[in-house]
Amino acid sequence: MKYLVYTLIAFGFWLLFTFNLSIQNIIVGLVISILTVVFLGSYFVADVGKLGQPLRYYWFIVYVFIFAWECLKANLDVAYRILQVNMPIEPGIVKVKTVLKTDVARATLANSITMTPGTITIDMKDDTLFVHWIYVPSGNPTEYTHQVVGRFEKYIKKIFE
C-alpha cells in the first residue's frame, strides 16, 4: 500500500516534468518510478495515512501563502541591511525550543526558519533548534522563541501532526 502511493507520486512528477502523453513516455515513466521506489522507498519516512485527510491540504495551501509573504518580507529586510553603508547587523546564534514531535514536521519547521527574516537553522538536537540570526534583538529567550517559530508552529502542527 505504502509503496503503491510512492510509485503514483513519482509517476505524477514524471508526467509533469516531461509533459508528454505518448505511450512510450508512459511506459518509460512507469518503469523508472517502480525502480526508484524499489531502491529508495525505504528511506522515505512520511506517514501515508495522513495523505487522505482533506483538511490537511487546506491548511497546507493557507501555509504556502503565509510562507510566501514571510519570505518576501525576509528578502526586503536582508536587502535593506545590505544596502546600508554601515550595515546594521548584530549576528548571533540562539537556542529556541519547539513543541513539534514528528520528524517531518520538524524538518519543515527548520526549512521554513531558514527561508525567513535573517535566520538559518544550524543544528537540531531533540527539541532544541540552534538558529543563526542576522539581527538578534535584546530580550529574554521566550521572546526569541515566539519571534522565530511562533508564526509557523501552529500551521505545521495542523498539517503534519
Binding site: 519570505c71 525576509a74 528578502n75 536582508v78 536587502a79 545590505i82 544596502l83 550595515m87 547587523i89 549576528p91 531558514t114 527561508m115 535573517g118 538559518i120 543563526h132 542576522i134
Partner: peptide
C-alpha cells in the same frame, strides 16, 4: 552584493539563501 560585503560565512549564507 551581500556576498561581497558581509563579514563572515554565516552572514553570507543569509544573503545566498534569501535574496
Amino acid at each position: 552584493l551581500g556576498l561581497i560585503r558581509l563579514p563572515d560565512v554565516y552572514n553570507r549564507l543569509q544573503s545566498s539563501t534569501k535574496c
